[in-house]
Design a protein around this nucleic acid. Structure first.
Length: 295
DNA sequence: GCGTCCAGGTCTACC
DNA sequence: GGTAGACCTGGACGC
């Protein structure tokens, strides 16, 4: 397995050095420190993990966290059919050689994924980063283990109790504060976890996620336990060039049509194609003679 | 230093 | 059933 570039896996504060990742998650409301490293190869992958918590883990917790890791790292994903399809695909054929063995990822926890989706809405990257950093620093928690100090996201309960005005002022969320608070309330009152959503039919899971305030199609696709195709203005420009040879005049309006092309072209594997394409932009830039990294 | 514009969506009122 | 317009606010940009 490889660590896909781009977003962090669990928290922006996680540390990744020499093939080892120090990160954190929340298990049954408690912060857990995680140290993950590879003990395998691309052909025989194996991930080792050590967990750190205030109380010793019992067998149930150990099994629960292992289940979460398997789900969120997509360890049981069979990539063979995707690679077979990619051989005949002009866009994917070289990318899959570069990123051979890379699994797609899932989110360890639902709330942080929703925070990412909400803070990405209608904002340049720098501003989204500022909102997420503020949320982490103003409302999040720190966990210290194995010589690392990792910041982790606030719980839904914390933000559900926080006045909207305070969230706006401290996390610079603007109009998004109202939506994030509504989501936090919904989750703290009992909303299906990612484990529950995985167990549902994909359409049913998406429908459920779409009931959250401020979560539309893009955000739902981003959060979906099964890799979605979250086309936004940025990625629509990239896929516009890949499919049609040019950036769409109006990327926002082009999203629906581009999605249909991807669906037809990659069928059940469009989520994988999405991740592989966006993780290999330098190679695609060479191949298509367009600098996608500057989009 | 100041004014203007707009962003990696979503929702709603209106037709 | 489709769509224009509002939504916070900080950073980029022009002057």
């Amino acid at each position: 397995m490889r660590k896909p570039a781009g977003w962090w896996w669990s928290t922006p504060d996680e540390v990744y050095e020499n093939g080892t990742c120090w990160t954190a998650t929340r298990y049954h409301g408690e912060i857990v420190g995680l140290k993950l490293w590879s003990n395998g190869t691309v052909d025989k992958p194996m991930i080792q993990c050590r967990g750190y918590s205030k109380e010793a883990f019992d067998d149930v917790a150990r099994q629960g966290i292992t289940r979460m890791l398997n789900r969120a790292l997509k360890t049981d994903e069979d990539l063979k059919p995707f690679y077979k399809l990619s051989k005949r695909d002009n866009i994917l054929c070289d990318i899959v050689k570069d990123l051979y063995g890379m699994h797609t990822v899932g989110w360890p926890e639902l709330f942080p994924a929703l925070i990412l989706a909400v803070t990405l809405q209608m904002a340049p990257m720098k501003r989204s980063g500022q909102m997420m950093d503020s949320l982490l620093n103003q409302f999040g928690e720190k966990v210290s283990f194995d010589g690392k100090n990792i910041g982790y996201w606030p719980s839904p309960e914390t933000l559900a109790k926080c006045p909207v005005e305070e969230m706006m002022a401290k996390a610079k969320l603007g109009y998004r504060a109202k939506n994030l608070k509504a989501i936090a309330e919904e989750l703290s009152e009992g909303f299906p976890s990612l484990e529950d959503l995985v167990a549902m039919a994909p359409d049913e899971a998406k429908k459920k996620i779409l009931t959250l305030q401020g979560i539309g199609n893009y955000s739902a696709e981003l959060v979906m336990p099964r890799m979605g195709f979250p086309l936004d203005v940025w990625s629509a420009k990239i896929f516009g060039v890949l499919f049609n040879g040019e950036k769409p005049d109006n990327p926002r309006e082009a999203i629906v049509a581009l999605r249909e092309v991807a669906e037809k072209r990659w069928n059940g594997w469009m989520g994988h194609a999405f991740v592989y394409v966006l993780n290999d932009l330098p190679r695609l830039s060479e191949k298509f003679g367009v600098d996608f990294t500057k989009f």
